[in-house]
Design a protein around this nucleic acid. Structure first.
Lengths: 342, 342
DNA sequence: CATAAATGTTTACACGTATGTAGTAATTGA
DNA sequence: TCAATTACTACATACGTGTAAACATTTATG
């Protein structure tokens, strides 16, 4: 079995079955009359040779590539990892292949994508310029946006998936408030190149909206942002804890941040969750192993993946895309005081 | 800018430049004589139209697809996430696209891959059957194996990357031994469907080899395996701690396991690292946020990614693949007693 | 000056597939 | 019986590209 095989083509199948290539095509695409006899012979030949139509040639003929491109800022985190996993799973079942592209690559971005003839693009990026996205849309490439922020300026045939981030954060704020927290703080990402969240960002927006709904005045004390690394964040949290109006609840962009916050709070000698509450986002491994175990918000990666594929198949077959709405799930562990969210 | 554009082809470029299509091809592939005048006009037209050769058509002509397939057991963990990130980065720079496929998908596995005409496959999987891999090799598809275990039965044109797992674990064992641990335990993965490591697995092998080198008899007490989830692992660790010959050092397959072990050890009232040492693998986020911070072994994802691409380019251009050897890096934090590894 | 060599360009085909068009044979309808 | 329909099959072309080979032009050589 160590000889150099060669991938069989339609021609090989046709010869083995004793029919023309066209017949093979018709059998496999099931769109023309083919006699039962020949159909059987073709299928047997296909089986015997392990023939499978060449995706490349198929794509060239304009028949779709069964190829999805996933664009994200960085796949190196728990959330994206699990999303990719689910995406691959549901995509594979439907015959699709999933490819990856980092949003930070921008040389030749658009032309590269178009030259690949992928069937659709899923975008989950806060950094990808909206005009890039618009250009993809203008080239009639089906685009699915995973809404982590507002893509207000993107118009045309675009499908949007709302993952429930905003309402998830809102529930978190409400939970902390109802359990007695009155000095809530939103913890933003750490980054070398300063990048502050604004109302475009759905987490930030969720926090602000819910605070306003609760009638709480937003001040500079309501936010920790602009830290360049986790050490800086640690210090910032300590300062915030030891200030005149000490924070008693932290709502964090993700679990990694939340864990650092948690450690800082504990280091300051505060009791968690009795004196201070902390809630993260992602339900990552970190949230499960820190002590006390971190309360967090879990996203429905499987649901998102399914929704994305459903939308893609709609768009590919020409239907008008719709919006999909999913929900997050609160995972209450030990850094929040128990409280029925109802 | 909201009109439906259309992707330009070689023909469009040729017309705009006032030359034949062949000239365009020759200019872009730089393999024939073309007058300076026409070359200039072609390049200008290319620039103007944002033309890029259609990868699909190119692939169909057998000129490679600049397409790499990455096959792994599950990308939903820190290690794979970062590897993917690095892989995408170096691949993008060299014009490649990276696709994903889970090793647990096995229906039509081979034919699907072959029908995609990818240029190469990178495999990092403990579960993918070796005969599948062999089949890819037999179909003269360049394969790069990330050696997490022994693929002894795979023969032919295969490139192998040794990521330093085995020696990394060996160093860890030596470190714990030299810092005084005498009852070391290897902690295996948790899994529903029981799957025990053996000498094929490089971590397991590293542990056993080093233990034998140190002259320590391996017994059933040297291993914790067969746990179906983290709760079971927690209990198993507690039992092991409270047994007649209490363990004083745990070498774990990954950080997630190590964190659970750490929490169990602490819950049993043992001092870490004074009484018990724990070391993980991956340098994941979890290892950074648990308290005490977990000592661990970091892999060189960037180096692995570069090596993989280098090997792929070698194989694609017909050279005989070679073995690549990388090294891991010990990250000593607070769950091991400080000790100079020399 | 004639001819060979070097340089520059085009024509023609191939990769593996899908399908419009057209053709043949069998069946049906009146 | 003859036309009309149905059940099949085949030919020819196109997708966008790479490149051998034929052709054309210029330059070098004897």
């Amino acid at each position: 079995m160590t000889g150099k095989n060669t991938v069989p083509t339609r021609k090989d199948v046709a010869e083995l079955a004793g029919v023309s290539e066209t017949i093979v095509s018709y059998v496999l695409n099931a769109n023309r009359y083919v006699s039962a006899d020949k159909k059987k012979r073709v299928l047997e030949a296909v089986e015997k040779l392990h023939y499978r139509p060449n995706s490349i040639a198929r794509a060239l003929k304009g028949k779709g590539n069964s190829h999805i491109l996933f664009i994200a800022d960085n796949v190196a985190n728990d959330y994206f990892g699990r999303l990719l996993q689910e995406l691959d799973s549901v995509a594979y079942d439907r015959g699709y292949l999933v490819s990856l592209m980092s949003a930070k690559n921008n040389r030749d971005f658009i032309t590269r994508i178009l030259s690949r003839q992928v069937d659709a693009v899923i975008i989950s990026s806060a950094s990808l310029a909206e005009n890039y996205i618009q250009e993809l849309v203008d080239n009639s490439l089906p685009v699915v946006l995973l809404m982590t922020r507002d893509y207000a300026s993107v118009h045309g045939r675009v499908a949007r998936i709302y993952t429930g981030i905003e309402s998830g954060i809102m529930s978190a704020v409400r939970l902390l408030y109802e359990s007695g927290c009155r000095n809530l703080v939103h913890v933003d990402r750490v980054s070398r190149n300063l990048h502050f969240s604004n109302r475009q960002d759905l987490r930030f927006r969720g926090f602000c909206n819910q605070m306003e709904t609760l009638g709480i005045q937003l001040t500079e004390h309501s936010f920790i942002s602009g830290c360049r690394d986790y050490d800086e964040l640690f210090s910032a949290v300590c300062r915030r804890i030891q200030s005149d109006v000490p924070a008693d609840g932290f709502v964090c962009r993700n679990d990694r941040l939340a864990c650092t916050v948690l450690n800082a709070v504990l280091a300051c000698g505060k009791k968690v969750p009795d004196e201070v509450s902390v809630i993260g986002f992602d339900d990552s491994d970190s949230s499960k192993v820190v002590r006390p175990a971190l309360s967090t918000i879990a996203m429905d990666q499987k649901g998102i993946a399914s929704a994305a594929l459903e939308l893609i198949e709609m768009m590919v077959s020409g239907e008008t895309p719709v919006e999909k709405h999913l929900v997050t799930r609160m995972v209450l562990r030990e850094t929040t005081r128990q409280q029925d969210p109802e």
